[in-house]
Write a protein that binds this DNA or RNA. Structure first.
Lengths: 125, 125
DNA sequence: CCAGCCCTGACAGAGTTGTGTCAGGGATAA
DNA sequence: TTATCCCTGACACAACTCTGTCAGGGCTGG
């Protein structure tokens, strides 16, 4: 039992600030899936504790719900869906009669746009 | 002026299969925002009718909820959030054995940049 | 052995979402 | 003018999400 510290669900809960119930829920959403002992007990490793903690932080700082993160995960996995969504967003501009005059962006703005595009690919939108 | 057929909300509704109530709701989610007449009536242009129809199709075929699309939109707009999420997904693999936190003392920004770059390459496979 | 964990499944209550409908008050057009 | 649309705001209600808690039953360590 020594090697890598694997915590049981209750220990992991107190360690990360979730309730055991919520850890099961988070698992059900596919967000953090612990391994199981031979008899079926959930075992949380250090990486998963880390994930659980940062997940908490993420929710708080960005006021996002667990379900939203679950949906983002679905977007990551279902590429079909992701590109369908992305396609819809880009399909025909939202306002019909507006036509954009492409003003020249400054270098900074260009950089920003690049960054954003990069991140966008991150979520496959 | 003539031109672009602009439908009122009820017309747009019957044309696209939504209810007027739902069109207002879709607008509130920021998904399809019609222009307004001088007296405040919603006016839907052809592009928006198209968007409304394809939105319906999207929901059906991929079994996605309006709220999900709303969240995807939020992801598109709030890049901060998008990369926070992306970062979380890639943070330390799900399997527990892995351990070893990045104790890089270098600037956080450097680390972040590296992470983001990594993501990009991952997607460009 | 036995207290105290763990498992799954289920129900319950608060809160949120999705959708209809209605009320009070302008706008429009026959 | 009058019928018929539109607006916003609000209430209503089913369905769903989130979270706790409990029950029946299996492990586990002292």
């Amino acid at each position: 039992m020594a090697s890598t510290t694997n915590l049981t669900i209750h220990e992991a809960a107190t360690a990360t600030g979730w309730s055991p119930r919520m850890l099961r829920y988070v698992e059900q959403l596919g967000l953090v899936e612990p391994t199981r002992s031979s008899s079926g007990y959930r075992l949380y490793g250090p990486g998963q504790l880390q994930r659980l903690s940062s997940l908490r932080a993420l929710l708080e700082t960005h006021s996002v719900e667990l379900g939203d993160v679950g949906f983002a995960l679905r977007l990551r996995r279902d590429q079909e869906l992701a590109s369908a969504l992305g396609g819809w967003f880009d399909e025909i501009p939202t306002t019909p009669e507006t036509f954009e005059l492409p003003d020249l962006p400054a270098a900074d703005e260009r950089w920003l746009a690049f960054e954003q595009d990069k991140h966008q690919h991150l979520l496959n939108l």
